[in-house]
């Protein structure tokens, strides 16, 4: 694949909408189901993924000419693992309470398919700037999806947002239950599919 022809803005929007990691590509589903119980969790894990994605993309784009093709994948893994360790240590030191709420998931970013995929598909063929915007878009897309899920689950399940009482009662405790993540992600995907169908139909009609 040749270097991308898209502008930085297109790359950025691409990650958030067209190729949203969770709703469109259906990658990195574990945290989307597991810890999307509150907006805060979504935001923090989003920040962690954003950090790892941007830094790994930039690192690989920077050193792409020096990587021997046969050790491409190990180098990706090493890069991701390094940045995951860094963000893990930083979060554990500066936001200990929120870090505990996310449990094992921060360390598990290392196994998220989305990051390796972006390195393989994009960063190893493009410039640092393009990779930066691509990584930023992907990270923000992940954050956006996590926060949307967290928003729905926290508001409907607990009646709160970011820990503040909004509704004063709990409309549907079901959404706070762990298993509800599956249903919500399923419904969201169906919704995105539906929007696509309607959009395409409109386009044809015009």
């Amino acid at each position: 694949m040749a270097p991308t022809t898209k502008t930085n803005k297109e790359l950025f929007v691409n990650g958030i909408l067209n190729e949203n990691p969770i709703f469109r590509l259906a990658l990195s589903m574990c945290p989307a189901v597991g810890i999307s119980t509150s907006v805060m969790n979504g935001l923090l894990l989003g920040i962690a993924v954003l950090f790892v994605q941007v830094f790994s993309s930039c690192t690989i784009a920077l050193i792409k000419d020096y990587i021997h093709p046969r050790i491409r994948i190990p180098t990706y893994t090493l890069t991701i693992a390094t940045w995951v360790t860094v963000i893990d240590l930083v979060l554990a030191a500066y936001v200990p309470v929120a870090y505990k709420a996310m449990g094992i998931f921060v360390k598990l970013i290392v196994a998220f398919a989305i990051i390796t995929m972006r390195l393989e598909m994009f960063a190893c063929k493009n410039t640092v700037t393009a990779s930066f915007w691509d990584g930023l878009g992907m990270g923000l897309g992940f954050m956006f999806a996590m926060m949307t899920l967290g928003f729905v689950r926290e508001l409907l399940g607990m009646g709160t947002l970011l820990g503040y009482d909004i509704l004063g009662f709990r409309p549907l405790l079901f959404f706070a239950l762990p298993a509800a993540g599956f249903f919500l992600v399923g419904l969201m995907m169906a919704m995105f599919n539906y929007i696509e169908v309607v959009y395409n139909r409109r386009k044809k009609g015009l």
């Binding site: 762990p178 298993a179 249903f183 992600v185 399923g186 419904l187 995907m189 599919n193 169908v197």
Partner: peptide, 22 residues
């Protein structure tokens, strides 16, 4: 329903399994 075909319905099924495992 066409919009649910594939992954969305699989997620709903997994949700039912998760409830059972609860």
């Amino acid at each position: 329903p066409p919009t649910f075909r594939g992954l969305p319905i699989a997620f709903v099924v997994a949700g039912l399994f998760a409830l059972a495992f609860l």
